[in-house]
Amino acid sequence: MTDEQAMYAVSQGDLDKAAILYERYKKSLLNFFLYRQNDRENARDLTQQVFLRMLRYRHTYREGASFRTWILEIARNVFFDHLKQNPTFSDLTEIPDVGESYDETDEQHQYLHHALAQLPEQYREVLLLSRFQNMNYEEIGQTLGLSVANVKVRVFRAMQKLRDLYFNVSSQ
């Protein structure tokens, strides 16, 4: 069953299908939030809010619309609402606690997080959409209101900037 079929079923009242979507998207959304702010607890709450909104606004889902784009729109709104209420969380200053399974001595992860923390928001977002949401150019463009060519350019510049920051941090 595709995401779109599952979401359409949910919008028609078959709520059990929401579990399929939750299982498919919980990890990518958690990571999407985790690398945009610094707190696992917050990332978990924000992920939870996305799925609650998915259930509440299920009637607004239109048959055939890309589910990934739709849920990401909700995720971005949840994140912006969160920033409005907690402006201090927009700064990434600490290494996120990514859970018990994570080896905290992993230097690569620390460098990457520091580098991501310093990346301008528009670059960070485009990378996270591509990496954690597995979005293609069209979907990213649709989500951010950019043309495919501009998405590619932005991904490239984001990678360049991240590379500079990453090697700068790791050489210190």
Partner: peptide, 17 residues
């Protein structure tokens, strides 16, 4: 190299969630 590092980091969800 940077892209690969980005591929390697991923947090897991938990039972409470």
């Amino acid at each position: 190299r940077v892209w690969q590092v980005l591929q390697n980091v991923e947090a897991e969800t938990d039972i409470e969630m």
